[in-house]
């Protein structure tokens, strides 16, 4: 649905994005992840025809954003980071105006407005002047605006910024629902958001794509060292010498345990090696009680930090 090829954009002599290439399939929800000023917004602005690329091409539904800009714009709903709202209009007249310039047929207009008002849950503020709305409502009107012409492609720049926790959950659910029939790109720096809403993640840092995968795979791929917690019924004096001798174990760290009956240990092993089986075997052979064995998957949050702080383990993987 969206084909981005070797996209580069300079601001003056400073590159904002360099050689960004990716595809988004129809019906896919792609998450853009990256710290501030990583080039997320620039990429989105190029896809939505707001600004041109220095080099590279973008095709949306087969139309080039530069050559067939109008065709592309018909198919895209875009919610910029700051929702583009006219503060002196009421929500309803604003949506009516947007429907008109997005080319919604006059007969369909009322229906479209009703639909997006329901979807984004802004029924109560329909007749309110936008300037008087809270940040959360403005954000939702911005989302309503992007949905009004029922576009094939939705581009959402940080859609949940400024919402309260309840609204964030609602909006994420909405995005997930929309993802059934729309192709969506959303950018965010909130990590749980990506794993909750996206089929695929693209991590951008300093204008370059540094990783691209499903949230689960990404997490798995980046488990540079396997870590897990075990709970035994023997104290460290007995357990440590034995555990540390197991082939592949880096180190074993006794952890604070809740009572004096059980002892927790954190076991670190060398990269890409699952030693849970071996550890369990050793424990059983010594006749100890194994009460818990729990792997520590790395959360996306950790992945993100690693990627954007350029740790060498990432480079190696």
């Amino acid at each position: 649905m969206i084909e981005v090829r070797n996209l580069t954009r300079y601001y003056g002599s400073k590159p904002a994005i360099v050689d960004v290439t990716f595809d988004v399939e129809k019906g896919e929800v792609l998450g853009f992840l990256g710290p501030n000023a990583a080039g997320k917004t620039t990429t989105m602005r190029i896809i939505t025809c707001y600004m041109p690329a220095t080099s590279g091409t973008v095709k949306v539904a087969g139309f080039d954003v530069f050559e067939d800009s109008l065709e592309v714009r018909k198919r895209i709903g875009y919610m910029p980071e700051n929702p583009p709202l006219y503060h002196d209009m009421t929500v309803e007249s604003y949506l009516d105006f947007v429907a008109k310039i997005k080319g919604v047929e006059p007969r369909e207009r009322k229906k479209s407005i009703d639909r997006v008002v329901e979807l984004t849950n802004i029924r109560d503020v329909r007749k309110t002047i936008i300037g008087k709305l809270s940040k959360g409502f403005r954000q939702r009107v911005g989302l309503a605006q992007a949905l009004i012409h029922n576009p094939e492609v939705l581009i959402l720049d940080e859609p949940t910024v400024g919402l309260d926790p309840k609204q964030i959950i609602e909006v994420r659910k909405l995005i997930k629902d929309l993802g059934q029939e729309h192709t969506i790109i959303l950018s965010t720096h909130i990590l749980p958001e990506v794993s909750q809403t996206c089929d695929r993640v693209l991590i951008i840092n300093e204008g370059r794509v540094v990783a691209e995968d499903s949230p689960e795979n990404l997490s798995e791929r980046l488990q540079s060292s396997e870590k897990f917690t075990i709970q035994l019924d023997v104290p460290p004096e007995t357990a440590l010498p034995v555990l540390e001798k197991v082939e592949g174990v880096n180190r074993v760290i006794p952890e604070k345990s809740s009572g004096d009956k059980f002892y927790n240990y954190s076991v670190e092993t060398v990269r890409k090696k699952d030693l849970r089986k071996e550890i369990a075997k050793v424990v059983v052979e010594n006749g100890w009680g194994l009460y818990e064995l729990r792997p520590h998957g790395m959360s996306l949050e950790e992945v993100f930090l690693r990627l954007t702080t350029k740790e060498e383990e990432v480079e190696a993987s």
Binding site: R45, T48, C49, Y50, L70, E71, R73, K74, I76, Y78, P80, N82, P83, P84, L85, Y86, H87, V98, I101, K102, G103, Q145
Partner: peptide, 14 residues
């Protein structure tokens, strides 16, 4: 200033 130009530029309007 308000960023609404972004709406106009990304809408199918010449």
């Amino acid at each position: 200033k308000m960023g609404t130009i972004e709406l106009l530029f990304t809408s199918p309007i010449k």
